[in-house]
Deep mutational scan, measured.
Amino acid sequence: AREMGVIAAMRDGFGFIKCVDRDVRMFFHFSEILDGNQLHIADEVEFTVVPDMLSAQRNHAIRIKKLPKGTV
């Protein structure tokens, strides 16, 4: 199932999404941004959540798609 959120932080090559449906900041890597979009803080996005290979306690966001403002 796809989830929605807002870009909360951007770093060098990765960032975090503030999720709508869960009280966490979800890690993502820039390589998972679809359509070659440039994302910025406060952009609204949808994404798929998958378990982190390195840590069973953590998840991360993949297949991130920018949404029109006002969607979330």
Rank of each mutant, 00 (worst) to 15 (best):
D43I: 04
F16S: 04
N37C: 14
P68M: 06
D21G: 10
R22K: 13
F28A: 02
D23V: 03
K18F: 06
K66I: 02
V45H: 03
G70N: 03
R22V: 04
R11L: 15
G13Y: 04
L34D: 10
I62Q: 04
V49Q: 05
I33E: 01
K69G: 11
R58P: 15
I7H: 00
V20T: 07
D43V: 00
K65A: 08
D12V: 04
G5S: 07
M4H: 10
F16N: 01
I64K: 00
L39R: 00
N37S: 13
G36C: 07
Q38I: 15
L34A: 12
N59I: 06
Q38V: 13
K18I: 04
V50A: 12
D43W: 03
N59S: 13
D43N: 01
M26H: 08
G70V: 03
V50G: 07
I17Y: 00
V45T: 04
K66V: 06
Q38F: 12
V50W: 07
P68T: 08
M4Y: 11
V72N: 04
R11T: 08
D12I: 07
K69A: 13
L67V: 09
F47V: 00
T71N: 05
M26S: 03
G15K: 02
E32Q: 15
H60S: 08
F27Y: 14
T48C: 10
I62E: 11
I33D: 03
D35E: 11
H60Q: 10
I62N: 02
G13N: 13
E3W: 05
L67K: 01
D52Y: 08
D52K: 09
L39E: 02
K65V: 09
L34V: 12
K66N: 07
V45D: 03
I64G: 00
A42T: 11
F47D: 00
G13Q: 03
F30L: 07
M26F: 12
E44K: 01
G70Y: 03
V72C: 09
H40Y: 10
I33L: 06
H29P: 09
G70I: 00
K69P: 15
P51Q: 13
L39D: 02
T71Y: 04
E32A: 06
F27K: 14
K65E: 05
K18M: 07
R22T: 09
K66Q: 09
Q57F: 10
L54G: 13
A1T: 11
F14H: 15
T71I: 05
F30H: 10
K69H: 15
F14G: 08
M53Y: 14
H60D: 03
T48Y: 15
K65H: 06
R58F: 09
A56M: 12
D35F: 08
F47G: 03
D35V: 02
A1V: 14
I41C: 10
F47I: 01
G70K: 07
K18P: 02
Q57L: 07
H40N: 13
I64D: 03
H60N: 08
G70S: 04
H60F: 09
L67G: 01
E46Y: 00
L54I: 08
V72M: 07
H40G: 10
V72D: 08
F30Y: 11
P68V: 07
I62F: 04
F16D: 04
I17E: 00
H40P: 00
V49R: 07
F14I: 07
D21H: 11
F30Q: 13
